[in-house]
Design a protein around this nucleic acid. Structure first.
Lengths: 111, 111
DNA sequence: TGCTCATTTGGCCATTTAGCCAAATACGCA
DNA sequence: TGCGTATTTGGCTAAATGGCCAAATGAGCA
């Protein structure tokens, strides 16, 4: 794999890595519906340390998936690229398919 | 976040984690075009140890993204869920946007 | 059976990641 | 200025990941 190709896939991988965590997917999901949410609200919903949530937000931000605005002493986050949504449909399809396979395997064991 | 919601996002995260690596994205990209490829071909193209490539393939397989067929003493892999493709368009959009931001920042420094 | 090629598995090490706590920073308000 | 609230940063530890090498497994063939 040449350097240019590698760079292309590494750029894609960076975005995926940023998304690849339950908490961060939850954050994205909330932002698909709510347009603008502050750190405190996320923290309350997620039930983790504020610093942990803040770090998750910063991961998403440096990947370019969300952006932030300061207002008063709060920071509000919003999606910067709503097309993220499209991925979820695909993910569900994969999950469904995989679950079906597992059921098949489980049944074959019982035969 | 309740247990059921958490489980949902963890299932999605698993798939993303499986995709979140340059080599594995390359493998998926090849399989979008080639339908069936054996381990040896991947190894040659990627230029890593065969064992490394094999492990990447197994990560993709356990995530349900690819499936394998043995034929002779070779193992062929194929995509099991071509909708993976849809993600790439989105990734490119994010990358473009982020690059544009970085250029803006760089320019503002020079002002 | 014994040899060879293709692939996978196990072991090891270096690096990265997630989480918490504590401390720092930023803002608004008296 | 000084206090309280919101958020981020630094430091630490435990766990996961990616890579290589060496060894094991499996298929085909003499």
């Amino acid at each position: 794999m040449d350097a240019k190709t590698l760079a292309k896939f590494e750029a894609r991988a960076e975005i995926l890595k940023a998304m690849a965590h339950a908490t961060r997917l939850y954050i994205l999901d909330v932002l698909l519906k709510e347009d603008e949410v502050c750190v405190g609200d996320f923290t309350a919903q997620i039930g983790a340390d504020a610093s942990t949530v803040s770090k998750h937000l910063s991961v998403l931000k440096s990947a370019g998936l969300i952006s932030d605005v300061k207002r008063g002493n709060q920071v509000f986050y919003r999606l910067s690229t709503p097309c993220v949504l499209r991925f979820f449909d695909c993910a569900e399809a994969v999950i469904k398919k995989r679950t079906a396979e597992q059921i098949k395997v489980a049944q074959s064991i019982n035969e």
